[in-house]
């Protein structure tokens, strides 16, 4: 399940040294280096924060120059873009670009065109009839470009990262697993890609453009770590003693609407309920890494990474 990007979450998919009977020890590094040979099909992965993984990051750093696509010049432009964005744009579009008074700049919906030149045009000319102000006379061309670059970076990931997956996957095989209703993953039961699939979880179209790779991987292996408030599961108990668990579609101060996994819709007035609360766990199964082989996990991941 995909959640909103946490700004400070610099995740590295690291060290999962959990020995499940019959399972090998696996260790994933920032650079994808293998510590322990994975010779077993089923693994259990956990994701540690970069703080927890301090010793491993040293290895990554030695290779960072090679894996980083950013040159020093790019980084300077990004820093400039960030300063300009924060000072000029964040008031309406949010500190992380997820919108507010102004539109979300990270959701891949571009009301005035999605090319760089479209975004530059909007920044320069503003949008008449709205509070989007003209910036053309105030900024140099290169400054506008740096804002666009930074906005693009906001949409793409929660921050720069050198994380790479443990192994390459086969996107074709992953696609099959994704859509196979009787398979081991059954992702499409809940997630939609290209208009195919269910609606219990978020749509994953263009997910690779919207979320960082490590965030996507983490979402698969630890679905409850961050739950988007828009995709929280709730449990309600009616006064007649019926208990229903479903995805919250909407909630007001007086009512709540939810949809069960089987698609059934319910609307309740809160005063008619004995109790209701959000579940701490995502509706997404937590055992997917155990259901899939390492290879299969990376196949599904590779398929998701093609969605950009």
């Amino acid at each position: 399940m995909v959640r909103s990007v946490q700004p400070c979450t610099r995740l590295s998919l690291v060290v999962s040294s959990i020995v499940v009977p019959g399972c090998a020890l696996i260790c994933l590094h920032l650079n994808g280096h293998i510590d322990a040979q994975a010779d077993e099909e089923r693994v259990h992965l956990s994701v540690a924060s970069s703080k927890d993984a301090a010793p491993e990051t040293a290895i990554a750093e030695s290779e960072s120059a090679q894996s980083s696509e950013l040159t020093a010049k790019d980084e300077a432009a990004l820093a400039e873009g960030q300063a300009l964005y924060r000072g000029l744009c964040s008031g309406c579009h949010g500190g992380m670009g997820r919108g507010g008074k102004g539109p979300n700049l990270t959701d891949d919906r571009w009301l005035h065109g999605d090319k760089d030149e479209d975004i530059i045009r909007v920044i320069k000319n503003g949008v008449p009839g709205t509070t989007m102000k003209k910036l053309g006379e105030s900024l140099k061309e290169q400054q506008t470009a740096s804002i666009v670059g930074y906005v693009r970076s906001l949409a793409r990931s929660p921050g720069e990262s050198n994380w790479t997956p443990y192994m390459a996957g086969d996107p074709k095989a992953g696609e099959q697993l994704f859509f196979d209703d009787n398979g081991k993953a059954q992702c499409a039961k809940c997630h939609t890609v290209n208009r195919k699939g269910g609606h219990v979880g978020p749509t994953l179209d263009r997910i690779a453009a919207r979320r960082s790779p490590e965030f996507v991987m983490e979402s698969i292996v630890q679905p409850s770590k961050f739950i988007d408030p828009l995709f929280e599961a709730v449990q309600v108990a009616t006064k007649e003693g019926k208990v229903i668990v479903g995805l919250r579609i909407n909630e007001t101060n007086f009512s709540i609407q939810l949809r069960e996994e089987n698609g059934r819709f319910h609307s309740f007035m809160k005063r008619d309920l004995e109790e209701f609360h959000a579940l701490a766990k995502s509706l997404m199964p937590e055992n997917i890494p155990e259901q899939l082989s390492v290879k299969q996990l990376h196949d599904v991941f590779a398929f998701l990474m093609t969605l950009n």
Partner: peptide
């Protein structure tokens, strides 16, 4: 908190906030 650059007629926030 970040660079505070004043451009006449444009936002002068000196960085930003994220809810």
């Amino acid at each position: 908190s970040g660079k505070a650059f004043f451009i006449k007629g444009q936002p002068y926030w000196g960085s930003s906030l994220t809810l």
